[in-house]
Computed example of a mutant assay.
Amino acid sequence: MKLKRKLVAKPWGQTVLPDIFGGSSKKKIGEVWFEAPEGITPQLMTKYLFTSEKMSIQVHPNDRQARRVGFPHGKDECWFVLDAKPDAVLGLGLTKTVSPTKLKTAAILGEIEQLVDWKPVKKGDFFYVPAGTIHVIGADISLIEIQRNVDVTYRIYDYGRPRELHLDESLEVATLAPYDMKHCRDIPADQSASITDSTPFGLFQVIGDDSEILSNTISKEWQIIPLEGSVTVRGKLIKAGECGICPRLSDIDLSKNKKALVACTMT
């Protein structure tokens, strides 16, 4: 099945997108979503993100915390960087462990950026973002985000934009410590790779028709995001800038693939 593409305007988005998304836009497009037909709820959600400004500083709850307030599960996500200007940065975790009071005070005073650990970023970088990680995507970055499909985001700080903040909720779920660098990787552009390790979902980079790298994984949901070339999913052609979904690995034909990301549930 081919998922339906939806362009979403954001205050931090871009007015010039890659040609596969239509090029120039009158609106600032920040996200490209892929949505299933009514009645079907995928366990994962794939997005393209394009930034011209910093996004909000935010955090997501884990399973226990999310269920306590009525959500089915928490939200882990990951980022695969497609492009970034030389001075682009991501914020992941804090520079040091701090108390809830210190973080709250810094957020209220507009000084929280000094606590965030800003990391340089380049094309090919991968970051897994566990639930509880304080994070922010900086300006001038294009990336693919794979996340568990649940709408629960707590904003800590939003650079003066007129959107709701969730400071108290954030303090209840945030890990007030540095990011564990074991969750980031530099992915070689020309090699198939199993990118994630011991996470709620799997992510693979597949070069050509190298289906062997996927063969030992058991999953009930596969999402395929071609980066170069095309794939066929249950008879539907999926090209770059599109996303396909299927329940079985045997539904995927990689014979015309050049490079693709393949995500799957692990539970």
Rank of each mutant, 00 (worst) to 15 (best):
F126D: 08
T133C: 13
I141P: 09
T133Y: 04
L109M: 13
L109Y: 11
L109R: 12
K123D: 01
D117P: 08
E113Y: 12
A106N: 03
S142D: 13
D140G: 11
I108W: 10
A139S: 13
E113W: 11
V116T: 06
V136Y: 05
I137K: 00
T133A: 10
I141T: 10
P130V: 08
G124N: 04
P120S: 03
G138R: 02
K122Y: 09
I108K: 07
E111I: 02
A106K: 00
I146D: 14
V116I: 14
I141S: 06
F126L: 09
H135N: 11
G110W: 01
L109G: 06
V129Q: 04
L143A: 14
I144A: 05
F126I: 04
I112P: 03
L109T: 13
I141E: 03
G132L: 00
F126T: 05
E145L: 03
K122W: 11
V116S: 06
V129K: 09
G124M: 07
G138E: 06
T133I: 08
K119P: 07
D117C: 10
G132P: 03
L143Q: 03
E145R: 06
E111H: 13
I146M: 12
I137R: 00
E113P: 01
I134N: 04
T133S: 10
V129Y: 06
L115E: 14
A107D: 07
E111S: 05
P120V: 01
A106E: 02
L115W: 04
K123Y: 05
E111P: 05
Y128Q: 04
F127Q: 13
K123W: 04
V129C: 12
F127T: 03
G132N: 11
D140S: 15
A107K: 01
A139N: 08
V129G: 06
F127A: 11
L109N: 15
F126A: 09
A131V: 08
